[in-house]
Nucleic acid binder design. Structure first.
Length: 250
DNA sequence: ATGTCATCTTAGAGATGA
């Protein structure tokens, strides 16, 4: 089975890149984030033509998450206690339970959105209590946390920044401690497995990126390979995130 | 690091978020 997670930064704008990518890479289950799309505008028909059923939660301009599956989508849930924004959706995809998450950015230390981010991550951890870490389950998405110093291009540039604070890292570690493994992709260019490069200031060209997109899997899943598709971040009309692709056995 | 991108408001450029 092949999985992928991709923050597409608007599925409407990205459709000319997303559809050929799905055909070329052929993932069985895909988590998308930042669809920036209302449910009634989601391109279900285009995806169905490629063999994907979709579960989407979105209300338009911001956020929006989806699970695409060639193995069906059942038991769809987009609820997270106390957090109505469309930032999480989960579905049973054949033998695998898959969740797509778009963790709040946090904006800046001291900003109310930073506290909101930590609350949101705590709610996600609490939500795991209703699942079983002995079952095949993945949480995939844009976590907006760099777990290790090596997950950003220069930790010294992040001394007063979100994404690397002990509190954010502890919130991510709490997800792992429940029973999830951080499926790290093979190192990419410069030995860094980055998944995101800011559009501004030539960050992609200079490989000044961050690893903030994750596949987290229970130990019931056997990982065969994992990589970041940097090609999808290049050229005209790219998202600012690259997809993470994981091959696994159940 | 802040050189971009996408969307919405509301008719053309500004605000917002990342």
């Amino acid at each position: 089975m092949r999985l992928a997670t991709w923050n597409v930064n608007s599925i409407g704008a990205r459709l000319p890149r997303l559809l050929p990518w799905l055909e070329a890479v052929g993932p069985d289950v895909v988590a998308l984030q930042e669809t920036k799309c209302a449910d009634n505008a989601f391109p279900y028909a285009d995806l169905r033509a490629l063999g994907y059923e979709a579960a989407h939660a979105g209300d338009g301009r911001w956020n929006g998450v989806a699970v695409l599956s060639r193995l069906g989508v059942a038991q769809v849930s987009a609820s997270l206690d106390g957090h109505p924004e469309p930032r999480l959706i989960s579905a049973q995809c054949g033998p695998l339970h898959a969740t797509s998450v778009y963790v709040p950015n946090g904006r800046a230390l001291g900003d109310p959105h930073y506290a909101y981010k930590l609350d949101w991550l705590a709610a996600l951890r609490e939500r795991l209590e209703s699942a079983d870490p002995a079952q095949p389950l993945v949480v995939m998405g844009d976590l907006n946390v760099a777990l290790h110093d090596a997950d950003v291009w220069d930790i010294r540039a992040f001394s007063d920044s979100t994404h690397v604070t002990p509190a954010e890292r502890a919130a991510l570690q709490a997800l792992l401690d429940w029973g999830l493994v951080d499926v790290e992709a093979r190192p990419g260019k410069g030995e860094f497995p980055f998944t995101y490069w800011d559009y501004r200031a030539g960050m992609m060209h200079k490989n000044l990126g961050m690893r903030i997109d994750y596949v987290l899997a229970t130990r019931a899943v056997t990982v065969r390979d994992a990589w970041v598709d940097r090609e999808a971040r290049k050229g005209k009309g790219a998202s600012d995130h690259a997809p993470v692709v994981v091959d696994l056995d159940l």
